[in-house]
Design a protein around this nucleic acid. Structure first.
Length: 846
RNA sequence: GCCGAAGUGGCGGAAUUGGCAGACGCGCACGACUCAAAAUCGUGUUCCCUCGUGGAGUGUGGGUUCGACUCCCACCUUCGGCACCA
């Protein structure tokens, strides 16, 4: 095991001073354990990070996803998340922005309730304790939050407005109840939204999700499908990956609805959805989902009646996983009934099969085996006819047997009046024709389903609805909010605890005053995080969720950082909620996050940190040992922020070493600042350092502010520090002082405690974090001489120092005169010479 | 299968507009300081060889160009998402 870098108190000697260096002066040792808490207290006392509301400054809203207050405290993923946000927030403040950088807790959720069931603790107390701990840990990291705006979603003064927003959705027809086959997690004893089912399993507990027929609350996110899609095109600063995931999830398909009729049911209509209306003449059968409402009538009295009845029952009881898994075999049964083809009038047999889903399209499909791979496989299995209607352009044999479905472009044949059309034209013309005849028409279908919103759990926001025997479903008036979560509940793990509270369940109807029953379901906790970023803009408003003028001062969030696991959960819901609030006139922004940045995972030994693997690195232990500044520095330096980061103990020591190096550098030169000389970069060394300093300022500003590449920003400062160490003693002292001072300023966003301490040591006024970010001197970047490379056939053969003013001819002449170049050109003919001023000369010769 | 991203030394990574590949850091080796060690400071560190004015080299194969990690085409590998969505 490595020797700890942090010395013990005995090693430090009296007064924390040790002797270092050749100049034999007493220097203070870098002791993060002392200075970090000291400055954290000072910042708090002086309200250093209170949100600046100076409207003359441009705004910047920096936000990190707020944590769920688990009993574990913060993990390294949080540290990475907050470190990135804090660097940006601090940098923008120094750059003259007014910055909103708030924090809160996503405090409702199942684990609190499970703790209540397993350990008999009060979920509220359990949660509040965890919140307190996490807040302390966040403060210990030295993140510059405005704690006055802290928001906990489980607090009545927050959730009353979650209820307020629910009522707004209800008023706007966007919240409704319906009976449906829904996802049920047997382990969590609650229903789940589609977004919360991953591979047929519960996103939280990984249990296999079951289907249940229940009446539930839904939010009409499908009404916003097109707006959610369109909005993505206006988010250039979102990763393509995340936008693709959302597009994928929404799953918009253009096609047609086509109406078939069933003569034996008195010309009952049955519609199918297809993306290939051009293949309509190739239909040889039709398939209904097992749950399709027409199935019972169709099979009545048919030979297959009993078999199909049993098949339908099995399908209904099958889990999502067993039903839609990728290699589940297609199974179907002929109902014995037939439908009439809308254009040819031919009989089309109607089948029922497992692969047709009731909740997509119309729950019925037309079977075109010649031009669809699934239909082809199905037709082969059950010996159904295959009728080809699309053929390759050019010559073709209209009766050729197919060995596989033909899914490419082509020309129509065997298609009545549409023969000879390209299938692309037919895709447009056939639906138009159907529409004229009242047999369907063009339509679009979405994969996205409405947001199943109610949960049969206690620790969430109560849905503000009562059920009255005479008035029916009655919303609780906004002025009566919040509907408080009751405390007199039983946690037995057998039922929704809310149903056990007599005082909660029994109430009076707000409309008629008669006896009524409260809704005992709570809201999906994803609603809480779908608007918290708006609440931060006006966190103490007691009348409404937030005032429009406050929200408009800050929204949208300029830089939002958090895990990509929320790509189609939190991020989709937040976009939806923001769009609804925009349409309700509550906020101008119709997209919540201008720039979304998913930080990479923190790994240890190549895999995700987990208790079971025993590879968890505790942030608080690292802080105790090296300080928060080192932890932040390492996590930002070790990898670009979007990539995975493998935790490395020696890497952490490297970052600690660097901070010590900066610390000693300032100590060594602290004397310069008592009577500080002006920078006069006249000697060569001073000129070079001055230039490097200003190049570094330019690069670091660009890396943080534009590129969000903190690892390269830090490496540039490291190079500058190396240059300061190498700076000769006889060179200009003023230039040195400037370099030292600006190094401290540039490191302030990364290592806020150490730089604050150093800033006070070199006599800086006020907090280092209230200083203006250094400007670079454009003139300093101009060089009078540049090094140029001389290549022969693209290989570097020599280097030249050339005045920047030299013209191409002069450079070429100079290059040709070099001995080395002459040697390489010996016996060769020069074919061409390329001169790129300030870069290189390339001589082509053979 | 479809969509998205990534492949560079022993390791993490850099190269911002097509112009010196390997910045910065880790690790390693050697040296200075020390009675000694730690810390610190300094030097070296892509690979190969016949060791010099050498050759090769950014997943593979081709192409464009005076010049390609960077652009184009084809492919391989890894990771992530979606997937009986009609």
């Amino acid at each position: 095991m490595n020797q700890p870098l942090v010395p013990s108190n005995q090693e430090l000697g009296a007064g924390g001073f040790i002797f270092l260096g050749v100049e034999d002066v007493a220097m203070k040792k870098y002791e993060p354990q002392t200075i970090e808490p000291k400055w954290q207290k000072a910042w708090q006392r002086q309200d250093v990070y209170k949100t600046d509301d100076d409207k003359n400054k441009p705004k910047f809203y920096a936000l990190e996803m707020f944590p769920y207050p688990s009993g574990e405290g913060l993990h390294m993923g949080h540290v990475r998340n907050y470190s990135i946000g804090d660097v940006v927030a601090r940098f923008k403040r120094m750059k003259g922005f007014r910055v909103l950088h708030p924090m809160g807790a996503d405090a409702f959720g199942l684990p609190a309730e499970n703790a209540a069931i397993q350990r008999g603790v009060n979920p509220r107390e359990w949660t509040l304790n965890n919140m307190k701990r996490i807040r302390e840990e966040q403060a210990r990291l030295g993140i510059s939050y405005d704690w006055d705006r802290y928001v906990g979603t489980c607090e009545p003064d927050y959730y009353r407005f979650s209820q307020w927003l629910f009522l707004l959705f209800y008023e706007r027809g966007l919240a409704y109840r319906k009976q449906a086959a829904v996802n049920w997690c047997p382990n969590c004893s609650t229903v789940l939204a589609n977004e919360q089912v991953e591979d047929g399993r519960c996103w939280r507990c990984d249990a296999e999700v079951e289907k249940k027929e229940l009446e539930q609350w839904f939010l009409k996110i499908t009404d916003y499908a097109d707006k959610l899609l369109e909005g993505l095109d206006r988010l250039p600063k979102w990763p393509e990956k995340v936008k693709a995931m959302q597009r994928n999830w929404i799953g918009k398909s253009k096609g047609a609805e086509i109406t078939f009729t069933i003569p034996e049911l008195g010309d009952e209509k049955v519609s199918v959805f297809t993306t290939r209306p051009d293949t309509l003449y190739g239909v040889t059968y039709m398939v209904l989902a097992p749950e399709h409402p027409l199935v019972p009538q169709l099979i009545q009295g048919k030979p297959n009646e009993e078999t199909i009845r049993r098949f339908v029952k099995t399908m209904q009881n099958e889990s999502e996983l067993a039903r839609t898994g990728s290699d589940v075999e297609k199974v179907g049964y002929d109902t014995g009934a037939v439908a009439k083809h809308p254009l040819t009038g031919e009989d089309v047999p109607i089948w029922v099969a497992n692969y047709v889903l009731m909740d997509y399209g119309t729950g019925a499909v037309m079977g075109v085996p010649a031009h669809d791979e699934r239909d082809f496989a199905f037709a082969r299995k059950y010996d159904l006819p295959i009728r080809r209607v699309i053929f390759p352009f050019g010559t073709y044999d209209p009766d050729e047997k197919l060995e596989a479905a033909y899914t490419s472009e082509g020309v129509l044949d065997h298609s009545g009046p549409f023969n000879g059309l390209s299938n692309k034209e037919a895709m447009r013309k056939i639906p138009e024709h159907l529409q004229e005849k009242g047999l369907g028409g063009p339509t679009v279908s979405y994969r996205l389903r409405d947001w199943l919103f109610s949960r049969q759990r206690y620790w969430g926001c109560p849905i503000p609805i009562v059920y009255c025997d005479s008035c029916g479903v009655v919303p609780v008036p906004k002025e009566e909010l919040p509907v408080m979560l009751p405390e007199d509940v039983v946690f037995d793990g057998k039922r929704n605890p809310l149903t056990t509270s007599e005082t909660f369940v029994h109430t009076t109807c707000p409309s008629c005053g008669g006896k009524a029953r409260r809704e005992t379901d709570t809201m999906d906790t994803f609603i809480d995080s779908s608007w918290y970023f708006l609440r931060y803009t006006d966190p103490h408003n007691e009348e409404i969720p937030f005032a429009a003028d406050k929200a408009n001062e800050w929204m949208p969030v300029d830089y939002y950082i958090g895990g990509i696991e929320h790509a189609v959960l939190h991020l989709l819901y937040s976009r939806f909620v923001t769009k609804v609030l925009h349409d309700a006139g509550m906020v101008n922004a119709d997209e919540p996050f201008t720039h979304y940045f998913p930080q990479g995972m923190v790994l240890k030994d190549g895999s995700k940190m987990s208790k079971s693997k025993g590879n968890v690195v505790s942030p608080m232990e690292i802080i105790e040992r090296y300080g928060a500044d080192t932890a932040r520095m390492f996590i930002l330096f070790a990898a670009p922020p979007d990539r995975e980061l493998d935790w490395s103990d020696s890497g952490v020591e490297g970052s600690y070493r660097f901070l010590n190096r900066v610390w000693r550098m300032v100590q060594q030169h602290a004397g310069l600042f008592s009577n500080r000389p002006q920078a006069k970069p006249e000697d060569e060394a001073a000129k070079a350092l001055y230039r490097q300093l200003h190049q570094t300022i330019k690069k670091v500003s660009d890396d943080i502010g534009e590129r969000y590449q903190f690892n390269t920003a830090i490496s540039a400062v490291m190079e500058l520090v190396n240059a300061i160490y190498a700076y000769p003693e006889e060179a200009d002292r003023g230039t040195l002082a400037e370099a030292v001072e600006k190094t401290v300023l540039m490191l302030a966003p990364f290592a806020p405690h150490m730089t604050e301490e150093l800033w006070s040591q070199i006599g800086g006024e006020g907090s280092v974090h209230a200083q203006a970010w250094p400007m670079f001197d454009e003139k300093a970047l101009v060089q009078d001489e540049v090094e140029m490379v001389v290549q022969i056939n693209g290989k570097v053969r020599d280097k030249l120092v050339v005045p920047v003013s030299a013209d191409k001819d002069a450079i070429e002449k100079l290059a040709m005169e070099q001995d080395r170049i002459q040697h390489f050109l010996d016996g060769k003919t020069i074919r061409k010479v390329i001169v790129v001023p300030k870069k290189l000369v390339n001589i082509v010769a053979n």
